[in-house]
Each structure stands twice: as C-alpha cells, then as structure tokens.
C-alpha cells in the first residue's frame, strides 16, 4: 500500500528526478516554455494554462480518491497543504503579480530555461532573490506568517460534505470553465493575436 517512500528515503530523490523529467517534458510539450502562451490566460487569447491546470488537478483528485477506495494508498499518510489565512492569501497575490509581470511561474521557468529562453533564466534568478529577500526580512512578519493557522484542512471538511461530492462539484466546475474559456478564446482569437 502506498505511499511507498517518504521524504527521508534516498529512493525518493531518484524517483523525484524521474518524475521531474516527466514534469518538464509535459510542460514543455504543452507550450509552457513560452511566457507569451502562458500569459494568454490573462488576456483571453490562450487558455491552455487553465486547461492543463484544472485537468491535471481533477485527474489527480479522482485518481487519489480511487486509489484510496481500492486500498492502494493510505490517504491519511499523504501530504495535505496547511492553510494560513493571511499568509496564503498574500502569497497568492504576490504570485499573481509575479506571473503577470514576469510571465512565468517557478516550474514553467525551468522548462523555458532548458530550451534556451534567457528571460526565463533571469526570472529564476529573480525567484531566488525574492526568496532571499523574504528570508532576510523574515523577523518583520514572522508572526503574520504563522498566524491564522487552520491546519491541513480540506475543502469537503470545511463545507461539511462528502469527499466524493466535493470532487464531483470540482469536476463540474472544471468542465464549465473549459466550456466558457473555449468560447472566449474563440471570440478573442478572431481579433487575431499572433505570438
């Protein structure tokens, strides 16, 4: 029964390298090595980011639920991100700005750098500088960073519905999003944005 290894296993490093290769290969193949394609999501001329993102999340969520149901994985052992009200929201705002201004996120910038995008290499340098700034100024907001701790809370526990229903609602939401973003993209690309 999974998970087979933990963070301290040496095997985890090897497996992570292999998973990383798949990660980079898929992102690059999907065109996520181009900042202009990625940013299209904010201007309506290319919603690939939304499609890949929600499709991946939905697939993994359904897969995990089935693996749990079949007894292949111990869902209580997997990592669930902790929620810190203020810090998580502020982080999202900063990342949104970083995305629209820089054109990448940390994962996509690696793929873009690997095929020779100089702007992506600069972006990576920026992420490191940003992390350094955060670490140096940490005492200023150490309290804020750990305040509003809600723990590893899931959306179904918070609302008080079953996990299966929550995943079903998520799937419906994703399909509706796919439909409307496809319609918007059709309209906007008629105005011809070439990149």
């Amino acid at each position: 029964m999974g998970p087979l290894f933990t963070g301290t296993d040496e095997w985890t490093l090897v497996i992570s390298l292999v998973i990383g290769i798949g990660f980079g290969y898929i992102l690059e193949s999907a065109g996520f090595s181009s900042s202009r394609k990625l940013v299209g999501v904010f201007y309506g001329y290319d919603f690939s980011v939304i499609r890949v993102f929600f499709m991946a999340a939905v697939t993994a969520a359904i897969g995990l639920a089935y693996f749990g149901y079949l007894g292949w994985i111990d869902l209580s052992a997997i990592y669930i991100n902790k929620f810190y009200l203020g810090s998580t929201i502020l982080g999202g705002i900063f990342m949104g700005l970083g995305f629209i201004i820089g054109g990448f996120c940390p994962g996509t910038s690696v793929c873009a750098a690997s095929i020779g995008k100089i702007d992506a290499i600069i972006f990576i340098g920026g992420v490191m500088i940003g992390s350094l700034i955060f670490s140096l100024a940490y005492p200023l907001y150490a309290n804020f960073y750990t305040s509003g701790a809600k723990g590893a809370v899931t959306i179904y526990d918070m609302i008080g519905i079953s996990k299966e229903l929550a995943i079903f609602i998520f799937v419906v939401f994703a399909v509706i999003t796919f439909y409307f973003t496809a319609e918007i993209q059709k309209k906007i690309s008629e105005k011809s944005h070439k990149y």
Binding site: S35, F53, N81, K82, Y84, S87, T88, L90, G91, G92, I93, F94, M95, G96, L97, G98, F99, I100, I101, G102, G103, F104, C105, P106, G107, T108, S109, I118, D119, A120, I122, F123, I124, G125, G126, V127, M128, I129, G130, S131, L132, I133, F134, S135, Y145
Partner: peptide
C-alpha cells in the same frame, strides 16, 4: 529582461508566503 527579473522577485516572495508555488 527587466520585467522578468521583477516578476521573478515578486514570485519568490509570494511562493514563500504561500508556502509553495503554482505547482
């Protein structure tokens, strides 16, 4: 290049507050 650097810095700060990035 300038904006890629600024965006990267903001993202680095954001991924720290957010305890992880987009992925």
């Amino acid at each position: 290049i300038l904006f890629a650097a600024i965006g990267g810095i903001l993202f680095g700060i954001g991924a720290s507050f957010g305890r992880g990035c987009t992925s």
